[in-house]
Design a protein around this nucleic acid. Structure first.
Lengths: 168, 168
DNA sequence: AATAACTTTCAAATATTTTTGAAAGTTTGA
DNA sequence: TCAAACTTTCAAAAATATTTGAAAGTTATT
């Protein structure tokens, strides 16, 4: 297999994976590209390689930086900006877990708490079951989120760390 | 808060969460509705409650059944079919983890293996770095997938099970 | 302060995904 | 076997998300 072909295949696959996980294709592709690039890339490089517009590149790079998994880099005597991806995979996983918790799980928990404790007067079997079920869901999601949080505190040795935390 | 209002809020929130995780909104909403319903619902019920078309309901119910998290149920002397959701949350988590592994992680692993071992002749630093990085990625994703698999084998007591598996 | 080299923004265009609804398909019971 | 009661399919329509590109903004250099 040609290097070029392999690279392309990787970028495409990573991009497709991204869409299935609620991240947009270009964002995931830029990330893929930066992951395997041995030196920082400029916006031009990225536009060229992925055949995308300047605006698209700019917006998705900003999004990646907001996630904390891509960094700006300044090169000696170069005016333009270069970008690199977080290459430490444990660190990458931690960042992604933290962001998803913050953006998705925490807000969902808030609503779950509201709805599971909010229906007071209705004594019907229906309402009873609703409160019961959403309460269980709240507990479950909260537990999962806590585990995620604890696991990420330890990165490299997350399992040992998690066990210790949970056993105390 | 009214029961109706709480129910609606829950269904909406679960739906929004679904979209962020690559599951479509209606599918997630149907699931939410079935989760909190104390008795099986017919397709009519679901269409009515969520204000969606017959085709939409049919397709998304089939998808939920393919995921193994919604079941058909037959009622005594009733011609039409009723649906219920998996309500055991541990079981639900296991099913989701298994499906995602099968549908997304496994195929990605296949490609990662291909590209990480496929570039043989190119001796450039670029190609070297590519092979190196994709290899690391392969190992990482494989490890994560294995852990997921092992954890799900134990459901209720997944942590103990996981620790035992990994320590052997 | 003016210019050049770059980046960001955002409204409009494009692409993708989801939804609809009517026709085709299936199953049950008379 | 037929008709009634239901479900599935799928092409077209609608909704949503992404992308473009040009104008506005920013920063560094002279």
């Amino acid at each position: 297999m040609e290097f070029r072909e392999a690279k392309n295949k990787f970028v495409q696959t990573w991009g497709a994976l991204g869409s299935q996980w609620g991240i947009n294709k270009t964002m995931a592709q830029i990330h893929a590209l930066l992951m395997i690039s041995h030196e920082p890339l400029s916006m031009e490089d990225i536009m060229e390689e992925l055949q995308i517009s300047r605006g698209n590149a700019s917006m998705n790079l900003r999004a990646l930086m907001d996630w904390g998994i891509v960094y700006k880099e300044f090169k000696q005597g170069e005016r333009r900006e270069f970008f690199t991806a977080e290459k430490d995979l444990d660190e990458l996983a931690v960042k992604i877990a933290q962001e998803r918790s913050k953006r998705e799980i925490k807000p969902a928990l808030k609503v779950l708490k509201e709805v599971s404790t909010g229906v007071k007067d209705d004594k019907s079997a229906e309402a009873k079951h609703f409160t019961d079920q959403t309460e269980k869901l709240y507990d479950f999601v909260l537990k999962a989120d806590n585990m995620l949080e604890k696991a990420t505190e330890y990165k490299d040795n997350w399992l040992a760390g998690l066990v210790m935390k949970l056993m105390r």
